[in-house]
Design a protein around this nucleic acid. Structure first.
Ligand SMILES: NC(=O)c1ccc[n+]([C@@H]2O[C@H](COP(=O)([O-])OP(=O)(O)OC[C@H]3O[C@@H](n4cnc5c(N)ncnc54)[C@H](O)[C@@H]3O)[C@@H](O)[C@H]2O)c1
Ligand SMILES: NC(=O)c1ccc[n+]([C@@H]2O[C@H](COP(=O)([O-])OP(=O)(O)OC[C@H]3O[C@@H](n4cnc5c(N)ncnc54)[C@H](O)[C@@H]3O)[C@@H](O)[C@H]2O)c1
Lengths: 212, 212
DNA sequence: GTTTATTTGTGAATAATTTCACAATCAATC
DNA sequence: GATTGATTGTGAAATTATTCACAAATAAAC
């Protein structure tokens, strides 16, 4: 079985987003060249990425926009509803709960957890906030598949341990620390400081030609 | 002049964060092996990354924790204060302004902009919110070097165009769209949907062995 | 229905990145 | 101050990712 690289998965997300835009704009078909240009890639890259999963195009014509979008959506698992829980209803957590787009994409935030008594048992955007001490039980009972961790850095590892013990296999971590998990658990992280540091690197090292 | 890859810059950020932790824990020195293990890399990778910028270690001993941290900090431009402006004081924008860590790292949010009259001319966390129509002028006058865009997707490009016209060379974009900028402007983006999609890909394609 | 113009899908070639492997170097020990 | 043990720094090798280049396939034109 082929190994799909991180970069390819990342690009599939980009194609998906571009295709959504093209669909909205009324493009019925799109070529690898056109798709490549909007994402600053080469047409060969686009075709190679897609070729790992099958052949979706028509020679001489390109790809049918809607169809390719749906195919990629399927590859990315966006043809599902995923049950998501969010832990840590602070600044970041609240922003995420308010964000409607995730739900539209099939990421359904079903459970919220915090350890602050002032937040527990109150509703937040229509969802009851649970005590983090009931975490494992509720993750299991609600068949949660993805957990978003948005607690302070020091609490991230202990929370992650609970999440893992509940059998959850995928975690999105906003705390700027690498959490340790077993091999079969996938952790992705969003690290905004890292992106800012990338920018300050570029500002500080204009003599190095930085790849973009 | 050597070209430094995105991956190397990303890892430098990771090393920096690890080194800060090791410093706090009281480690005076650290080997490439130890540093590699905490970030799930190889020692050779760590040494190669550093070698682009000089030789900072002592053979037989390793690296002095504090010294290496400061060296990497310097490479990343964290020995500066950077003047930052944030546009779009919604859910994401507010979370970012509240976050003290950025300032500690030298990213100083000096200006806030919005186009909502209810937010303009009010203070938010001690910073006056300006009207986005004064954007270009104020970015110039305050020598802003980094702009964070946290406006709705449809507004991202027009805002970016203003930012570019003010001469700002680095942008951190939270809107899930690729904004077009001249060659000499660096845009990094934080795309949370992309990370969620990566997770749902992993859940949907456990037959592909995904690189982590 | 034949020709022409496109554009895909993919093996081969190239480029980039990572890992290997080891000489060079230094700290610590005796 | 020689010896031992550890760890760096770095060319070379191996691996991985990207791009090239072209046959195959199809739509559109005539
Ligand atoms: N705010 C930002 O812009 C920003 C930027 C980058 C990274 N981050 C990171 O994101 C994470 C969240 O940041 P934030 O600004 O929302 O913090 P916050 O303090 O506003 O919110 C954290 C929330 O987690 C809850 N919490 C604390 N310990 C808990 C536990 N053990 N179990 C359950 N809930 C717990 C708190 O009650 C609070 O509601 C942090 O790790 C932070 O470093 C935030
Ligand atoms: N909230 C999230 O969790 C989340 C997650 C992923 C991505 N995003 C993206 O981040 C961006 C911000 O999201 P949000 O949830 O904070 O949105 P929001 O609607 O809460 O905030 C947007 C802010 O931008 C202001 N604004 C609108 N047009 C403007 C303009 N032309 N100039 C200046 N200000 C303007 C609005 O007044 C508002 O204050 C969006 O692009 C969104 O897609 C948000």
């Amino acid at each position: 079985m082929p190994k799909i690289s991180d970069s390819t998965i990342r690009r599939l997300s980009m194609y998906y987003r571009s295709l959504s835009e093209f669909e909205t704009k009324g493009y019925k078909t799109i070529s690898s060249e056109h798709l490549a240009k909007t994402e600053k890639l080469t047409p060969a890259q686009v075709r190679k990425d897609l070729s790992f999963f099958g052949s979706f195009g028509t020679r001489g014509l390109g790809y049918k926009t809607r169809e390719l979008k749906e195919r990629i959506g399927k590859i990315l698992g966006l043809d599902h509803i995923w049950n998501v829980a969010l832990i840590g209803l602070g600044n970041v957590g609240s922003a995420l709960v308010s964000y409607k787009e995730f739900q539209k994409q099939g990421f359904l935030i079903k459970l919220l957890f915090d350890n602050d008594q002032r937040k527990i048992n109150k509703k937040h955007k229509g969802i009851l906030v649970s005590d983090v001490k009931d975490l494992v039980e509720k993750l299991k009972n609600n068949k949660i598949e993805i957990v978003i961790i948005a607690v302070p850095t020091q609490a991230a590892q202990e929370v992650a341990d609970l999440v893992v013990s509940a059998g959850v296999k995928t975690i999105l971590n906003f705390a700027p620390t690498r959490i340790k998990v077993p091999q079969d658990v996938v952790v992705r992280f969003v690290n905004m400081a890292m992106e800012l540091e990338h920018l300050s690197f570029c500002l500080s090292n204009q003599d190095f030609s930085v790849a973009t």
